[in-house]
Design a protein around this nucleic acid. Structure first.
Length: 733
DNA sequence: TGTTTAAAATTTTAC
DNA sequence: ATTTTAAACA
């Protein structure tokens, strides 16, 4: 074990104060780059080194798997032994662990399946249709989001106030109830349940609560500003008895309000936990003075915050580079070129990160990076486990592991094609419903009673037999070997090989992905633990290759880079239009915190880019500089107006033009802060319109609001159609 | 049942 | 513009 004391001696006074405060509630307000992780790990090590707590007495919770992993590794290094006995992990992972241990009490079996968003959507879609609700007007996505928010508030169906139910005329709650019943029947949980059910478990069973309270005498929470109501209740229940809870966070970096996070949790901590000690970390060790000044200026426009003053002993450093460009193509080229010259100058690609507001911006950047030949990795993009072939393979495993998993059954029963069509599936579904049993069991009944036609009968008999064979082999084989066997014997690999519609390189990529999956499975001793890994550890481990990092601003939280590029710094994109017209000042404040996070990722150099015109939905949209750019003091900035840009927007002028410095940030058109540029909700019943394909028509009805508004239009020639207002490109006739 | 064609949806952020 | 989903067709 390293000498903890010598490490504590190297900390600055507030850091040391936090590390030495081991009993009672503690709030550490840690600004960006102030050594938060260092404090967290050292404090954990100190708990153990001083004998205040044994590893198994400690619960340490983070939000991402990456953070959990880093925490574990660094603590292990400090204490010189494993953290295996510690309750250390993400909220979701720990929730799953608790829930599996006591599954029966919540009406589940310990081997329950964790559904991903796709399964969830599919299930809800079926329920919406069963309830005879128009799925176009009330999409499953939306319901999934609503239910998720309810779960964030720790509401079971019976807890939801009727007034809160705006879905399909107040039918959301009954759909939620039906959904929970289906989940239970499937022996499955969604992500929200991993947080919600443990809270109910602890609330309803005093013996279990007492057990955890006795065991977990010290609780540590990272990113406390991102906790939602369920997580808060969870922490409260567990810490009630001993009050040894230490939370670390930064209200200025709360960017998950849309996921139910309550900034209020961190703002009211001192009230919640009487006598809480508060420590502020304000010395920044990451960024230059200029970057810090810019970030502070931007965030100071927010009202709801613990005010704090970040400072650094570092120099001002380079000014922040601002590049107005013509369009997103030039934007991408500029960034790719800059990364290239950074590398030529002796830097490495890994120093550079491109952070954008929306995932959709990835593509144009990628294209340009490929063209210029700059290596890149997309972090948190299309995740490995979301790929179709991977999900198919996993569906086989799931059905193998949990025969009640109807969703997995539906996914793969006719993949590869076995001749099991709608007719056969309907028969099986009927049997299943009649006898309330899973589809797989129903299939066996249907086969036994000879209810299926020739082709389906043969195919399903073979399939059931195969499953039995795999089941028998399961014990003898390692999971990876079993996976190989299933892929080959089910004919899945053959299907990929035979797929003539797919280009050869894609077929190869799919095969490689499956090989990678098999390889990943080698680390697991049984199918169950692998499936747990799959559902919870979605962030793919990134190789340490020398490549520029591309990611959303959300994905960048907690990271730092020498050089940061911020493309798309435009009103309507960053801040995003959705947040502007939705929640008024709340929305813009969260966007501003997001901008704060983005800026503070940079250690030395920050490059902001915005375009005059951006391709969106396949067509060009004029754009103007972000209002956040105007919140940065001018002395922090250095503007690089290119020739192309000044041609397109003369008012930008050139660098040498004295007027340019004062005018460049003024948008060409007056800002319309809280209204949408699109045609949303401007349409009224009875209006006469023209559509490119359908011709002239009259609006018969409108449904919903904003960009999602749906119009029912009776066209003269084409008949009645339902169109989404923002996509239909309607003109007034 | 499988293939072709046309319409609708996508773009907020993610555990 | 590109991708996904539905429906019409063979």
């Amino acid at each position: 074990m390293q000498n903890i004391q010598s490490i504590i001696d190297s900390l600055n006074p507030p850091q040391a104060e936090a590390v030495n405060h081991l009993q009672g509630p503690l709030l550490v307000l840690a600004g960006a780059g102030t050594g938060k992780t260092r404090v967290l790990t050292t404090r954990l090590a100190n708990l153990i080194a001083t004998g205040t707590a044994q590893p198994h007495n400690i619960m340490a919770v983070t939000f991402t798997n990456k953070a959990a992993k880093e925490l574990a590794e660094r603590v292990e290094q400090l204490i010189g032994s494993s953290t295996a006995g510690m309750m250390l992990g993400t909220f979701h992972a720990l929730g799953a662990r608790i829930l599996r241990r006591h599954a029966e009490r919540m009406g589940l079996r310990p081997d329950f399946t964790i559904l991903d968003t796709d399964d969830q959507k599919r299930l809800l879609d079926a329920l919406i249709k069963e309830a005879n609700i128009d799925a176009t007007a009330y999409p499953a996505r939306q319901l999934a989001h609503i239910i998720s928010r309810w779960k964030d508030k720790a509401w079971l169906p019976s807890d939801v106030p009727t007034a809160e139910d705006g879905f399909a005329g107040g039918r959301g709650i009954s759909l939620y109830r039906a959904y929970q019943n289906r989940l239970q029947a499937l022996n499955a949980c969604d992500f929200g349940d991993l947080l919600l059910l443990p809270v109910y478990l602890l609330k309803q069973h005093n013996d279990i609560l007492a057990e955890y309270q006795n065991r977990l005498t010290h609780i540590l929470v990272d990113e406390y500003q991102d906790t939602n109501t369920v997580q808060y209740l969870w922490l409260r229940l567990l810490s009630m008895a001993h009050k040894n809870i230490c939370v670390v966070g930064d209200d200025d970096q709360s960017i998950y309000g849309w996921r139910g996070a309550q900034v209020a949790n961190i703002l009211k901590f001192e009230k919640d936990f009487d006598g809480a000690k508060v420590v502020r970390l304000e010395q920044n060790y990451r960024s230059t003075g200029t970057i810090l000044k810019a970030a502070s200026a931007v965030i100071s426009h927010n009202d709801e915050r613990h005010s704090k003053t970040l400072w650094t002993s570092d120099d001002d450093g380079e000014k922040i580079h601002v590049h107005p460009v013509v369009d997103d193509r030039e934007e991408a080229r500029l960034i790719a070129d800059a990364c290239d010259s950074h590398q030529r100058d002796g830097g490495s690609y890994t120093d550079c990160a491109v952070l954008f507001r929306t995932a959709a911006q990835t593509r144009s950047l990628e294209e340009q990076f490929i063209k210029v030949g700059v290596p890149y990795v997309v972090i948190g993009g299309m995740k490995f486990y979301e790929r179709k072939e991977i999900r198919d393979a996993i569906a086989y495993l799931r059905l193998f592991h949990n025969p009640q998993d109807d969703l997995a059954y539906q996914r793969i029963i006719n993949v590869p094609r076995r001749g099991v069509g709608n007719a056969a599936l309907q028969t099986i579904t009927d049997v299943a419903r009649e006898r309330t049993m899973p589809l797989l069991a129903a299939t066996e009944i249907a086969l036994g009673q000879d209810m299926l036609s020739g082709k389906a009968k043969g195919a399903l008999t073979t399939f059931i037999d195969q499953l039995t064979v795999w089941k028998n082999l399961g014990a003898a084989h390692t999971p990876d070997r079993l996976m190989e066997l299933i892929l080959e014997e089910s004919g899945y690999l053959e299907m990929l090989r035979q797929d003539k519609a797919a280009p050869p390189d894609e077929t190869k990529a799919r095969m490689d992905n499956l090989k990678e999956l098999v390889r990943a499975m080698q680390d697991y001793s049984d199918v169950g633990s692998f499936l747990e890994h799959v559902s919870l550890v979605m962030d793919g481990e990134d190789a340490n290759e020398d490549a520029v990092r591309l990611m959303t601003v959300h994905a960048s939280k907690g990271l730092e880079f020498d050089t940061v590029f911020l493309p798309g710094f435009e009103d309507g994109l960053f801040p995003h239009q959705r947040s502007l017209n939705e929640t008024g000042v709340k929305g813009i404040e969260e966007e501003r915190r997001l901008a704060y996070v983005a800026i503070t990722r940079a250690k030395r150099k920050l490059v902001i880019v915005y375009t005059a015109s951006r391709r969106m939905y396949g067509q060009f949209q004029p754009s103007t500089a972000s209002r956040f750019l105007q919140e940065i003091p001018e002395e922090c900035l250095e503007i690089h107006a290119t020739v192309g840009a000044s041609l397109l927007r003369p008012e930008w002028g050139s660098r040498t033009d004295a007027r340019a410095t004062s005018d460049w940030r003024k948008p060409a058109e007056p800002l319309m802060p809280y209204t949408s540029v699109s045609t949303s909700s401007e349409w009224d019943i009875g209006e006469r319109v023209f559509h490119q394909k359908f011709g002239y028509g009259n609006i018969r009805g409108t449904e919903g609001e904003g960009d999602n508004a749906r119009l029912t239009i009776a066209f003269d020639k084409a008949g009645q159609k339902q169109l989404v207002a923002s996509l239909a490109k309607l003109q007034r006739a």
